[in-house]
Computed example of a mutant assay.
Amino acid sequence: MWRNIASNALTFLVVVVFLFGGALIWAQNEYSASGPLDAPICLQVARGSNFNRVSQDLEEQGAISSGMIFRLGADYTEKAGQLKAGAYLVPERASMTEITDIVTKGGASTCGTEVVYRIGVNSALVQVRELDPAVGRYTEVLEFNPAEPAPTEYAAFRDDMSTRFRVSLAEGVTSWQVVQELGQVDVLDGEVANLPVEGSLAPDSYEVTKGDGRGALIERMQMAQQVILDNAWENRAEGLPYESKNEALTMASIVEKETGNAEERFLVASVFVNRLERGMRLQTDPTVIYGITNGQGVLGRGIRQSELRAETPYNTYVIAGLPPTPIANPGRAAIEAALNPAASDFIYFVAKTLNPADGHNFAATLDEHNSNVAAYRKLEAARPNQ
């Protein structure tokens, strides 16, 4: 009898092990298989949330077939403790494996409502926008000048716990402009103790959270710019007429202010490098303007002849070589152009048309340049209402 009992028990154990193994294989396949979503969704993961709450939300939105398998899979892959708060775009047919990776990898949120504080060269702007998961594009909900009273609807977006915030710096803004406009960003705290060194802030888009310090954000911008400059300096072309990284950064800022045309930056840089190498003055208006404004806002008028003749450290019509500091915060592309300029014999350039976006005509001789200038003057003379 005992032999029969032992035999039956062994048989039962084999069946249990077999069933368990089969269930485990089935669960693993379910965890990695394509999911049931037939359209992308925006998944909100609140601060302090856990995989149990996330799995319930995913089940309710039809993104996963089993909350239990989703939770067990996260435990098995040791990712259950790595959940990151945010708003995440979950693509159609995403597997539970892919969704787990999305909500645990961290980084910038990828969908939902966001408020973007844009700091531009000529103005600042606050934009409230929302990503439509179905089409993968942002739609603008609200827009206003931060120097003016905010629309009443803005507070609801700002105070919503799921809203994300970004501070976006345009290429060519000055450090003074950045500090001034950060003071208008009402989700940030604290003051900026000292004006950042000109050129030391990396133009980019920075995700922030409510209560972040303005000083800490400035430090992030400075660290990012230092990494960009160090990498570009390490990979610079040979024989450039710069004695330091600061001189290269100064050149990059001039290139940034002289052209907004990405395709031209390397040619513009070559003109100024060629001028330095030949002992010619740079003769660039943006440096003169910086000497007048000290980077504090836009000049808002033409440069006077007396200002072009004035002997100031930033008047490159008078001084030899580079000015003593950068004249703005250049972006990555301008820094790379300054440290790897195009190979050319150009030493002059002038705008092609009255639209700055159309770029410049370049010349290697004064005769060519004078011809280009004459063509530009004709366009000026023919301008309506002049």
Results as ranks from 00 to 15, higher is better:
Glu234Val: 15
Ile347Gly: 00
Gly239Val: 12
Gly297Phe: 01
Thr284Ala: 14
Thr284Lys: 09
Gly300Trp: 03
Arg236Ser: 13
Gly297Ser: 09
Ile303Tyr: 07
Arg265Trp: 02
Val350Gln: 09
Val288Gly: 03
Tyr242Cys: 01
Asn329Glu: 06
Ser253Arg: 00
Ala248Trp: 12
Pro326Gln: 02
Val271Pro: 02
Ala320Tyr: 13
Thr316Trp: 01
Arg304Lys: 15
Ala343Leu: 08
Tyr242Glu: 11
Leu267Gly: 03
Arg275Met: 06
Arg332Ile: 06
Gly297Glu: 04
Pro313Gly: 09
Thr312Ser: 13
Thr293Ile: 11
Tyr290Asn: 10
Glu264Ala: 06
Asn340Phe: 02
Ala337Phe: 01
Val268Gln: 11
Ala351Arg: 07
Ser253His: 00
Asn315Gln: 10
Arg301His: 07
Pro341Met: 02
Thr293Trp: 04
Thr312Lys: 05
Val255Glu: 12
Asn274Pro: 05
Arg309Asp: 15
Ile319Gly: 01
Thr287Ser: 14
Tyr242Lys: 06
Asp285Lys: 03
Gly300Ala: 10
Ile347Phe: 00
Thr293Gly: 08
Lys245Leu: 08
Leu299Glu: 14
Tyr242Asn: 05
Pro324Arg: 10
Gly279Ile: 05
Ala248Arg: 09
Glu307Val: 05
Pro324Gln: 07
Gly331Arg: 04
Pro330Asn: 13
Arg265Tyr: 00
Arg332Ser: 09
Val298Phe: 07
Ile254Ala: 13
Leu308Asp: 12
Ala320Phe: 10
Arg275Val: 01
Asn329Tyr: 06
Thr250Met: 02
Asn261Lys: 15
Val288Pro: 04
Val273Leu: 08
Tyr242Ala: 11
Asp345Lys: 09
Pro323Trp: 05
Gln283Cys: 09
Ile335Lys: 03
Arg275Trp: 02
Pro324Gly: 14
Thr259Ile: 01
Glu307Leu: 01
Gly321Pro: 05
Met251Ser: 10
Ile303Pro: 04
Val255Thr: 10
Ala342Val: 00
Ala334Tyr: 02
Gln296Ser: 05
Glu307Thr: 09
Ile335Val: 15
Ala328Trp: 00
Asn294Ala: 15
Pro323Gly: 02
Pro341Cys: 08
Lys245Pro: 04
Tyr348Ser: 09
Leu322His: 04
Leu240Cys: 13
Thr284Trp: 08
Phe272Ile: 00
